[in-house]
Simulated scan of single mutants.
Amino acid sequence: MSFLSQLRSAFHRHWRHYLAEAMGIAFFVTCGGLLTMLLEHPASPVRQALQTNDSARHWLMGLGMGLVIVAIVYSPWGKQSGAHINPAVTLAFWQLGKIRTPDAVWYVLGQVAGAIGAAQVLKLVFGALYAHPAVKFTVTQPVPLPRGEALAFAAEFIISFILMLVLLLALHSERLKKLTGWMIGVLLALYIVFETPYSGMSLNPARTLGTAVAAGKYHGLWLYWVAPPLATWLATVLFRKLYHGEDLECAILAGCGPSPSSPHFSGEEPPQYPDEAAA
């Protein structure tokens, strides 16, 4: 079977999961844009009330987006697809054999489409509010310093590595796997508060691409597509060494096992293509 045939077959079986990924990241991007306009746009009453309290606004942003990711992970559609909503996370689970190659391709395409689509809707609906210099389409770019790209790369690598390793360790633990979504939410909130000045806090290549397309600004975009996947790959390597190749039950961040109709269900077909038995 050719790879294109595998893609078509996978889409026919699992399109609902790919749609759930697109919806998940679209919701994330939309909430990020709305919260940023609420907290940073000069015309916002919240911004005016907290005008001199940058710390409070940062904490509100972190808390809000942390709760958004928790809501996505434990929502019905998040449980259906696994709530990766991030190409770097999907690629890491693909490397671990928890999602098949055609499914991983569709997951990433769905994530990119969802992020671009949500940012375009925000741009269309809110126009100048979303484009205001205080909001800047929520675009993520390196800090304007002589070594800004190097600093952003290092920061993105570190936060992505920590996030993926925590995620894997939690999913491996019977006691912690149901709390994985909450742990990610806490990390995301802390990253927004403390890491944003170093890289703009992306973690997610698809989200960064979506807002970059809306803004028409692509400076440093490459590093947000290189550092997080590289970091999550290294996290999977370390995880395998720590646990001597022990497997995860699934790649579903809510911590539940996959249903027989899920791309993560190991009994449906071999985790890696091509299928040698059918060759």
Rank of each mutant, 00 (worst) to 15 (best):
S262I: 10
H172M: 08
V237I: 12
A22F: 04
W225G: 06
L169W: 04
P144F: 02
L163C: 11
H219D: 15
L169A: 09
R47S: 14
V186T: 09
S262G: 06
Q51E: 15
G24H: 01
K241P: 00
G82R: 05
L203C: 04
I116F: 09
R57Q: 10
L109H: 03
S261W: 15
L163Y: 07
L190D: 11
M61L: 15
F161G: 09
L188E: 09
G64I: 12
V166C: 14
F194I: 13
L190P: 01
M61C: 06
G127E: 10
L176Y: 03
L168M: 07
A119W: 01
L171Q: 05
G257T: 13
E149V: 14
S81P: 03
M61Q: 11
L238N: 02
H14S: 05
G257E: 14
F157T: 10
L124G: 06
R100P: 06
A22V: 06
Q141M: 13
K79H: 12
G257V: 12
K123A: 13
A43W: 07
L38C: 13
G64Q: 10
E276C: 11
E276P: 12
S199Y: 01
K178W: 13
M23G: 12
Y198W: 15
N204E: 10
L50P: 08
E269C: 11
W182F: 15
R100H: 13
A235K: 08
A20M: 06
T236Y: 02
P229F: 02
L35K: 00
R47I: 00
P263V: 10
A22K: 04
Y218L: 05
R147G: 11
E156W: 01
M164G: 09
R175I: 05
L60A: 09
G78Y: 11
V237N: 04
H41R: 00
A71H: 09
L163S: 10
C256F: 14
N86G: 03
W59G: 07
P228C: 02
V193D: 06
V112Y: 09
W59I: 11
T138C: 08
V108R: 01
P271A: 11
R47L: 02
V121T: 09
L151I: 15
G62M: 08
L38D: 09
V121F: 05
G127Q: 12
H58Y: 11
M65I: 14
L190K: 00
L223C: 05
E249N: 12
L253C: 03
A104P: 04
S75W: 03
W222E: 13
A251G: 15
V121A: 05
F28A: 02
W222D: 10
S262D: 08
T180I: 04
G127P: 00
P133I: 00
L60K: 06
L167Y: 01
L223K: 05
R240E: 14
